[in-house]
Structure formats: C-alpha cells, structure tokens
Amino acid sequence: MLSFEDTVRLRHSPRAFLSTPLTDEQIHEVLQDAQLAPSNCNTQPWHVHIASGDTKRALTEAMLRNDELGQVTPDFSFDYADFYGDYFARSQEQAKQYYDVLGIAREDKDSRHQALLRNYAFFGAPHVAFLFMPSFGDNVRVAGDIGMYGQNFLLSLTARGYAGIPQTLLGFHADSVREILGVSDQYRLLFGISFGYEDPDARANQLRMDRIPLEQSVVFHK
C-alpha cells in the first residue's frame, strides 16, 4: 500500500468511475480501516450501509424521481446562501473549475443540471456507502465522528488503489434511502461515498482543487 504522505496527497474526489466492482474482501478491508476512526467517548456512532447492484439501481431511480418532482428530504440543512466571504468564493471557484473541465458554459443550465444528476448515478461507481448516525444533542460531535470515519474510509480506498467521493447531495433524499435500505428512522443520513476504481481517462477526473496556505487557516501560539 501507499505511504501516508503519498496517500493523503493523491486522494481526490473523482467524478467518473469504471464499472469494475470491488470484491467483498476488498470492501471489508476498507471497512476495517474505517472502523479504527476515533469517536467521542468511544461511541463509534457510524451506521454504514453499502449498496451495489440492483439496490444501487433502485436508489438511483428513486432519487431521479424525487429530483423530477422537486422533492427533497434532508435530515440536515444545507444552503449555499449560508456561505459567506472566502467560504462562498471557494465554493464558486470549485463549481467554475468543474464545469470548465466538462466544457459546460455558465449559462447552459440544462447541461449543468444533467451533470448534477450524475450524482444520483453515483458517477458510475459500482458501490456506494451511506453514512448514517444516531441523534445526540445538537449532533455536532456525532457528525464530527462520522467525518473522521469517512476520511479513514476515503484514505483507505486511495492507499489500496481504489477511489471514492463524498457526496452531500445523496443526503438530500434521506427518506427514500432509508426506505429502500430498510434503515430505522432513528438514524439520520449525513452523506454518501461512491467508490470503486477511478476512470483515468474521464475529463471530470482531471480536476484537482488547491488548498489555501496554512497561514490562512492555522494560528501558532508560543
């Protein structure tokens, strides 16, 4: 496997995958790595469902139907209007670079929407992991634990030669996902991770987003 230094620098969010599935053994190895994530008071609050094959296709159909009807059922709020300052600017720059790579003009709203719908087909990935969580208090610490689990999952994929992309949009259809996967209402859906083998020839996978300098995000006290 790759070193940590190589893994963390090679990890990115591909938006096109090969149809080749991972074996059950390969998926279990990744899950074992993810399971080692830290959590508040060792609660280990992650409740993970992996969908492939016919189940994944049923999820795609349900989410596309919801989109057509304009129906969303997120467990947690999300609104670009809540972003401000540099945070909003970074989100807009990411969108601009992504659509530029795809060759989609800003005014071409139909093509942009079609590109968005590829989220619901999991960008062609053969597998998707849905990360559910119980509700404790204001959920901030629980969501933080799920984030650390998700990062372990993503880094394990990269280290083993696979790839994955975390997708907030999948959480917009929590009711449909719970129904299809048979998940209790006591669990809230935070996000999903589509994963498999990256398609190295896809235009979408040429995108690499930069990171701000440390001086803009870290303050040293001595």
Rank of each mutant, 00 (worst) to 15 (best):
D210A: 09
E215D: 15
R188Q: 15
L64C: 09
L18D: 11
A115N: 00
Y120V: 06
D138R: 10
C41T: 10
V177L: 04
F88H: 14
V72F: 01
F172Y: 13
N205M: 08
M133C: 15
L22M: 14
D138L: 11
S194P: 07
G192I: 08
L154M: 13
T23G: 13
E25C: 01
R118M: 14
Q206L: 14
H113E: 10
T158I: 05
Y149C: 09
T60A: 00
L22P: 01
G70N: 04
E215Y: 09
G196F: 03
V48P: 11
D201S: 14
F78D: 08
T168Q: 12
L181R: 03
Y98R: 12
D210Q: 04
F88C: 09
T168M: 12
R112T: 02
R15A: 02
L181S: 04
M1Q: 07
V128M: 01
L2C: 11
Q216M: 12
D185E: 15
G171R: 04
L214G: 03
S217N: 09
G192D: 05
R188D: 03
I27H: 08
R203A: 15
E107K: 12
V142F: 04
T60H: 00
V183R: 01
P200G: 03
K109N: 02
D86C: 04
Q32F: 02
K96N: 09
H173A: 05
R112G: 02
V30C: 03
R65E: 14
D82I: 02
A129Y: 07
L117G: 07
F195L: 08
